[in-house]
Computed example of a mutant assay.
Amino acid sequence: MPNEIAIYSLTATGALLAHRLKASLEADSYVLERYAVEGDIPFNYLAELITDKFSVYRSHIFISASGIAVRSIAPHLKNKAEDPAIVVLDQQGHFAVSLVSGHLGGANELAGLIAEIIGATAVITTATDCAGVPSIDLLAKDRGLVIGDLGSIKHINAALLDGVKVAVYDPDGVMKIKKSSKHFYIVDTAEELRGLRCGVHIDWRRSDLPESVLCLYPRCLTLGVGCRRGVPAKEILELIESTLKINDVAVQSVLCMGTIDAKNDEDGLIEAADILGLDLNFFSAAELDEITVTKPSGMVMKHMGVGSVCEAAAMKLANAKGILIPKTKSARVTVALAKAVSGL
């Protein structure tokens, strides 16, 4: 597996610091060619190198002036959900500065780790960390929640910084908020979030709420799919999308997709899963036959040797005893959704 961290050093002293960090962090060390030794990856032009490597690594460490790092990464920055972590070190190793993607990208955590390894001071400037209050984007990341609108984060973090308790709708208790929490309180319905300064909505259901309400989606749903031979991805996706829409299901909460192993060479299914960014799991007829569904199909039994494909696959993936969204079908495709009791 390739390394996920890249280190860039531009001086001989910086190269020595990179060598100290490389082994501890399992990183690739890029060193200006005139200072590179065995084990380093030499380069001559930093801007060209960053253009080539920016999206390859999850984290980048610059042993350089912060201005050099900023100018190198500026053309490639997108948003806090996509940008990799950027940390800058001075060549003497006195300071480890979290520069970009402190929370979601993990730059704050990486700066702290680097500081421990080389005895540096971690420099963290994100407001919530400096104020000692929780950051909603970091809480979401830690709990495996998908953030809906990144722009809504600012409303929540601003309220927390102002010392305002934030209302949270969390029917499944994903956030595990205690009654004694100094920062959050639970409301019983999503409607209670309307009219408040801000709020957090945590659910697999879509909801039409103001921009000041941050929607977070737990990845707790599994999608089972069946289809006839040769069905194109477009037809499969149309039924999936319409089923999610009709049932107010957020696509962000769908974790994975499953079907029978007789379809493991079905191009349309494979392409549909790829477009949705979902892992596609295959189960044998015997595995699916272990799952009890309410309305097994004689036609499916005749062709597949099992009473259900889409419902059974969804329930198998979720380790659930019941179905959330029963089989929905079009002319050549069937889909169903199950929900894991305590997440996956």
Rank of each mutant, 00 (worst) to 15 (best):
L193C: 03
C215L: 04
G195V: 01
V200I: 15
K178P: 02
V168S: 09
I7P: 06
N157W: 01
P218F: 01
G307D: 01
A312G: 09
T126H: 08
C227I: 02
F43T: 05
A159Q: 03
A65D: 12
D162K: 03
A340N: 12
S24E: 15
Y30C: 04
E241S: 06
D274M: 01
D162M: 07
R332I: 11
V37S: 06
H183Q: 11
N79K: 08
T11W: 07
S180R: 14
E116L: 03
A338V: 07
D267N: 09
T128P: 13
L255Q: 07
E192A: 13
V97R: 02
D188W: 02
G119M: 05
F184S: 06
A336C: 07
I61E: 05
Q92C: 12
P232I: 04
L104P: 10
G102D: 14
A312P: 10
Y45H: 13
A36Y: 00
T51V: 08
S180L: 09
M304H: 10
L196H: 01
L237E: 14
N44E: 12
G343F: 01
A314M: 12
I114N: 00
G343P: 00
L214M: 11
H60C: 02
T328E: 15
L89C: 08
K329W: 05
L49E: 13
T292H: 15
S101H: 00
L104Q: 06
V309W: 07
Y217A: 02
L239K: 02
S212K: 01
E48L: 13
G268N: 10
V293R: 02
E241P: 00
S66D: 06
S152E: 10
F95N: 11
V254G: 04
G195R: 00
Y30P: 05
V293G: 09
G268T: 08
G14Q: 09
V88M: 01
S212T: 10
I68V: 15
A111M: 09
Y185A: 06
A272N: 04
M301D: 11
L145M: 11
L244N: 07
L324E: 14
T13A: 14
Q252I: 01
G106Y: 05
D265Y: 04
S72W: 05
L150D: 12
S135A: 15
V309D: 11
P2F: 08
L99S: 06
D289G: 06
L89F: 01
A127W: 06
I73V: 15
L21R: 03
K80N: 04
I275W: 10
E82D: 09
E109S: 12
Y30H: 03
F95W: 12
T11N: 11
Y57G: 00
A23S: 13
R20Y: 05
K80Y: 03
S29K: 00
A262K: 14
F283S: 10
H60F: 00
C227L: 05
H303I: 13
L104D: 10
M315Q: 11
T243V: 03
E4L: 13
G298E: 14
A313P: 10
I41C: 02
K263C: 08
E116P: 04
I86T: 04
C130R: 14
E4Q: 15
S212I: 00
K263Y: 09
